[in-house]
Amino acid sequence: MQPLDIFQLRRRHAIFFFLVLVALTYGAVLVTEYDTVRGLTALPRAATWAASNFVPDAEAFRRLPRILAKLLDTVLMAISSATVASACGLVVALMGATTTRLHPWLSLPARGIASVFRNIDVSAWALILLFSFGQSSYTGYFALFFVTFGFIVRVMIETIDEVSTDSVEALRATGAGYLAIISQSIIPACLPQLISWVLFMIETNIRSATLVGILTGTGIGFAFDLYFKSFNYSSASLVVLVIVVAVLLIESLSNAIRRAVL
């Protein structure tokens, strides 16, 4: 028998993969007793309901100044948590990166701490922190802070090792001290990536801050929660619209900044 050529082999893999996917889907439908027909026919009804109820009306627009004030709270919280956490994260990343760590033993704890902070979801952090800070802005702030911190440490460790190993060697050879090497070589080399990740975290935090706000009773998330639970769907829909517009604005702004620095 002829040995299989690579194309036949690849086709077999594709077919096998597709069959496994179908089996998994079918199995999941069986286990959860999901009624596909009812699920699909419910969609038009949901759309009709949303079109008639989930639309901002004149009364909702009268609340716009209050909603915008809440939005400002949330945006500022997202920005301050992202920037302060990134500054702290950069310091820990310097300890964790192979190029810049002061001692090999520091690397593992730095990565470990970052991993713990990152892998606990922002909503879980908010719930945990509720015990310490109650329903206040601190809870939301620290929840966003921790997740941003964990994320920034991880990506900056990789960036530092990737971008600056060579120039660090050169500066060590000139007799430059540790702090001078960091400020003159590592920071300039990593700055565009760092700014880009901070902007990314600000965008992410604005989205998360809405969710966290529902849990902690602060910011735009609280406004949404309040209107929604009091059956004021038209105002709740305006909150959603405002969030979408705000996120789009911030995204285009940070894209413009990225283009300028990269």
Partner: peptide
């Protein structure tokens, strides 16, 4: 070459002086 690619020629060349600097002047360049 091991240069800091994002910096200008003169900045990279001046890095050669960092060994003569104290901590403070070194950090601020």
């Amino acid at each position: 070459y091991n240069l800091v690619n994002r910096l200008s020629v003169i900045e990279n060349v001046l890095h050669g002086r960092l060994g003569y600097k104290g901590t403070f002047a070194g950090i601020l360049g």
